[in-house]
């Protein structure tokens, strides 16, 4: 089977390397750096490094510690789960290849949780706000229902080629972590507060904060769909509300870090024009 083989041409000869991890035991706890030593193997990525660390759970100083917690699922950069800050850059850990990382910074890899989301534990963060933004901009096609009523509207290849890249957004949050306008919002559950009340309060906080590039881009995706366009107005209203597109400072970091090369700044530009026109129409009652 494909898994039992090694690459004889591994270019890197280092026997082991150090992994520095910014850990945190839970929300509101202090964070701390911890060093681990990992034996080099060919074709490693940061996921396999974290797997080795979890299996061993001993630091470079020989101290037994709880395994580092991290999030992952698909391991082929289509699910978005394993996003973290690796050598100072926000990206997916599955596609972060150890050979490349060690070329850039010999002997050492540095891992930290995403900076703009509350830490749950170690490298695991809570990205509920990111998904909430998709609700805020009504990122769906408002179909009548799910019975069989024939095919959808015809779509030209040109439109498809414009929509498909936007639809590849895996809600990883890289664009948000790199955005200077996207500030961390951490809502803590109060003593005696019910789960439902806490969620409602958190969502309220999220809705007042910046929606972010990903949600703006999704709004443009659905506004360009023939059926989706029937809710174009409410989507633009959401983008013009508190925490909307006006917060964007045009730093363009989002597009630079997007692992799927989604033209986020193009979407933001389109959204800017669309909201302006929408506002004018509202003023003149059109």
């Amino acid at each position: 089977m494909a898994d039992s083989h090694h690459n004889p041409n591994a270019s890197h000869s280092a026997r082991s390397f150090e992994v520095r991890i910014l850990r945190q035991d839970g929300p509101g706890q202090p964070s701390y750096w911890e060093r681990h030593r990992v034996e080099y193997e060919p074709e490693m990525n940061v996921i396999s490094v974290l797997q080795r660390i979890a299996a061993k759970a001993i630091t470079a100083d020989g101290k037994h510690v709880a395994p580092v917690a991290w999030d992952c699922n698909c391991l082929e950069e289509v699910c978005g789960a394993c996003t973290m800050v690796i050598n100072g850059q926000v990206r997916q850990s599955c596609s972060a290849l150890v050979d490349r990382l060690l070329e850039d910074r010999p002997g050492e890899i540095e891992l930290a949780p995403m900076a703009k989301f509350p830490v749950v534990r170690d490298l695991v963060v809570d990205r509920a706000r990111l998904f909430r933004a998709l609700t805020k901009v009504k990122a769906w096609v408002p179909v009548d229902g799910y019975y069989d009523v024939g095919p959808g509207p015809r779509v030209s290849p040109a439109t498809q080629e414009q929509s498909y890249p936007l639809s590849e957004c895996m809600s990883c949050g890289c664009c948000l972590d790199a955005c200077p306008q996207y500030l961390k919002v951490e809502v803590e559950r109060l003593e005696g507060e019910s789960a439902a009340d806490f969620e409602a309060r958190a969502n309220n906080e999220f809705d007042r904060s910046f929606v972010g590039a990903h949600a703006i881009s999704q709004a443009m995706l659905f506004n360009s769909h023939p059926t989706g366009a029937t809710s174009a107005g409410p989507r633009l209203d959401a983008l013009m509300a508190e925490g909307g597109i006006q917060v964007c400072g045009n730093a363009q970091n989002c597009v630079a870090v997007c692992p799927k090369n989604i033209p986020l700044t193009t979407s933001i530009g389109r959204a800017g024009r669309a909201t302006t026109i929408h506002q004018l129409k509202k003023w003149f009652g059109a």
Partner: peptide, 18 residues
Amino acid sequence: DLMDRLGVTFNRTPEGML
């Protein structure tokens, strides 16, 4: 047909069919 209506970005022929 249903998935098409839900907005799945299926590849298209020049005429706009799936």
